[in-house]
């Protein structure tokens, strides 16, 4: 039976904090984050790697954490939405999302933030087209996207200005 399959020891750094855990081989990264570590900011919205609600950074790259096994993240560095604010201070992207009304229900927001964080960390000089491409794998059912693009552009301007 499945529960007799031996657990696998892994070590991950999440938002700067190290964790040693034993996980089932089939455990998904999103399950590790939500259920194992209680980081429920990362959401689940689909079962076909389409919606991006589960997007986090794994070793600096955006991944859909519903499509990565926890064991694949072994020895990895993970950043989730909870890691964006520093000492309680919002990241410019977070403020921009609120200012531009880029969220309604907020369910897609953590994934959107992580995708756009990754986009801007490559280069803050982005056109609206780049942004649209950058969030092509993130579904939002509330906003119609335009305000999200605006918010990311605003944060990009602010990042460049610094």
């Amino acid at each position: 039976m499945r529960d007799q399959i031996p657990l696998v020891p892994i070590e991950v750094k999440v938002n700067g904090k190290s964790h040693k855990l034993e996980v089932e081989p089939r455990m998904l990264l999103v399950e590790l984050l939500r259920d194992g570590l209680g980081l429920t900011g990362t959401h689940i919205g689909c079962d076909t790697t389409y919606c991006g609600a589960c997007t986090v950074l794994l070793n600096g790259n955006p991944v859909k954490s519903c499509t990565v096994f926890a064991v694949q993240a072994d020895q990895g560095e993970i950043m989730t939405v909870e890691g964006l604010a520093k000492d309680g201070q919002l990241h410019p992207l977070q403020s921009a999302f609120s200012e531009q009304h880029a969220l309604q229900c907020g369910y897609c927001t953590p994934g959107m933030l992580m995708s756009s964080y990754s986009l801007l960390s490559k280069s803050p000089s982005v056109t609206d087209k780049d942004i649209v491409k950058g969030i092509a794998g993130n579904v939002c059912r509330c906003t119609g996207y335009q305000n999200i693009v605006k918010a990311i552009q605003l944060a990009a301007q602010q990042t460049k200005g610094r």
């Binding site: 939500r34 429920t40 959401h43 909870e82 964006l84 969220l103 907020g106």
Partner: peptide
């Protein structure tokens, strides 16, 4: 309502 949602602190049923 934005503050908790952009921080990943919203509370949805599955949480």
């Amino acid at each position: 309502e934005d503050d908790r949602l952009i921080r990943g602190h919203g509370k949805f049923v599955d949480d």
